[in-house]
């Protein structure tokens, strides 16, 4: 298992965020994404625990794209991953962040 942390600046906080959003399941080829508001001084922090070791650069590329689509601030995103492909990771994060920003619990 590998633990990776990513931080992004320059996003905007969500006006009235839900207490939390959880999508996905920790199963083979899948991941769970937990999104919570957090007082991080404008930071978006993403913590990844993944069963697939050695894919830090891939995570970086996928998460750069996700942040470009969802430039949010003061949020903590926690991920438990069991070898999801980059496409699945991107879709799950879109699902979670849409729900978070839209206020709808997925």
């Amino acid at each position: 298992m590998e633990i990776l942390t990513f931080e992004y600046r320059g996003g905007q906080p969500v006006a009235s965020p839900p207490p939390s959003v959880l999508v996905g399941v920790v199963g083979s080829g899948n991941l769970e994404v937990l999104v919570e508001p957090a007082p991080l001084g404008g930071l978006c922090r993403i913590e990844v625990q993944t069963a697939a070791v050695g894919f830090g650069a891939t995570w970086q590329a996928v998460l750069d794209d996700v942040f470009a689509r969802h430039p949010l601030a003061d949020i903590r995103i926690s991920i438990n991953d069991v070898g999801a492909t980059p496409a699945v990771v991107g879709l799950r994060l879109d699902q979670a962040l849409d729900a978070f920003a839209g206020g709808a619990q997925a």
């Binding site: 298992m1 207490p19 939390s20 959880l22 399941v25 769970e32 937990l34 069963a51 438990n80």
Partner: peptide, 22 residues
């Protein structure tokens, strides 16, 4: 004990396996 409480399995960590928040 919702996922935000992060009460996860202490055993899976020792086995180097990802845990689920719930």
């Amino acid at each position: 004990l919702p996922p935000t409480e992060r009460v996860v399995s202490p055993h899976l960590r020792q086995l180097d396996t990802p845990a689920a928040f719930d």
